[in-house]
């Protein structure tokens, strides 16, 4: 299969900080590939290398079959890039922004309207409004339209959902899903674990290293222990008590419950006894399915 991106052993340092450490991965044509990791994991650096804005210190990378260094001019014509801060001109209107990006990439709004129509139609009623006056969700849609206007083969979205409310975030992922039909490969980064489920494949990234690459489902299944969810009315006490229990491997707050793993993967009366002596009488513990975040935690704790 043709690989849209193929990279091996990419490293990049800024002074003493190693932003990327031997990153290797490949992205297939027309897939939605997600880089999931916290701030400072190296996502932006990696995306800047992919978009030819930075050169790696070490390693090989080919994007759309082209070399990022030698063929950067050719490559830049075929990439749609949306940086972390939405790259919009706040003092231009919605329409002017879109028009500008269209001309810069040598096209017109009309020519590729079908590609952006799903997205742009949401904001078209406000096309005379200054981009600076749009809400976060609308800015995000406009920035996406601008990045798509020249029909790129590869769309690179750096944290497109940061600072946007849940409804807009959800809409945004729906739009990306629809773009698949246009055979555009989409690379997206996010610090939010739950968004991993909307990608075809994801790479978990932390401290400049890739922890895992797979489909979201397979990554969840990679969780090596049985996971239990514990609830009690006094959560802080519960966490402390669980952590003190001799059989506990990990105990982390997780939303309104506590996710716990045990060395022997089972719960018995000794646990409830322990909780009772710690003053917790209403503990309710069930087995639960691990999510991406659970697996991420597990991978972070794994000694190298």
């Amino acid at each position: 299969m043709y690989k849209t991106i193929e990279s091996s052993g990419i490293s990049k340092s800024f002074g003493p900080t190693k932003a990327l450490d031997e990153i290797s991965f490949s992205v297939n044509e027309s897939e939605v590939f997600g880089f999931i990791g916290p701030d400072g994991a190296g996502k932006t650096t990696l995306f800047r290398i992919i978009t030819t804005l930075l050169l790696p210190d070490k390693g090989e990378i080919k994007v759309l079959g082209l070399d990022c260094k030698a063929d950067y001019k050719k490559l830049r014509k075929n990439i749609g890039y949306m940086p972390g801060r939405f790259s919009l001109y706040q003092d231009l209107t919605v329409e002017e922004n879109l028009n500008f990006y269209a001309t810069v990439f040598g096209t017109t709004i009309e020519e590729n309207y079908d590609l952006i129509s799903d997205i742009y139609s949401h904001i078209e009623p406000f096309k005379k409004r200054l981009a600076g006056k749009l809400s976060g969700g609308m800015k995000q849609k406009l920035a996406l339209s601008c990045a798509l206007i020249h029909k790129p083969e590869l769309l690179v979205l750096d944290e497109p959902t940061t600072g946007v409310d849940a409804v807009s975030r959800s809409e945004f992922w729906d739009m990306l899903a629809k773009l698949r039909q246009h055979k555009i490969t989409i690379l997206v980064s996010t610090p939010y674990m739950d968004e991993a489920m909307r990608c075809d494949r994801v790479a978990l990234i932390q401290g400049g290293k890739i922890l895992a690459i797979d489909t979201p489902q397979k990554i969840r299944e990679g969780f090596s222990k049985k996971l239990f969810s514990a609830r009690a009315s006094e959560k802080y006490k519960l966490i402390k008590a669980l952590k003190q229990f001799h059989n506990t491997l990990t105990a982390y707050p997780f939303g309104d419950s506590v996710h716990v793993t045990f060395m022997n993967d089972t719960i018995d009366d000794s646990l409830y006894d322990h909780l009772k002596t710690s003053g917790i009488n209403d503990a309710y513990i069930t087995e639960t399915e691990a999510g991406i975040e659970d697996r991420f935690l597990e991978l972070m704790n794994k000694p190298e």
Binding site: T52, L53, Y81, M82, L88, Q90, V104, F105
Partner: peptide, 13 residues
């Protein structure tokens, strides 16, 4: 500062 330079650089300009 607004990050638009990144996109301009990536463009064919």
């Amino acid at each position: 500062e607004f990050g638009t330079m990144e996109v301009l650089l990536v463009s064919p300009l």
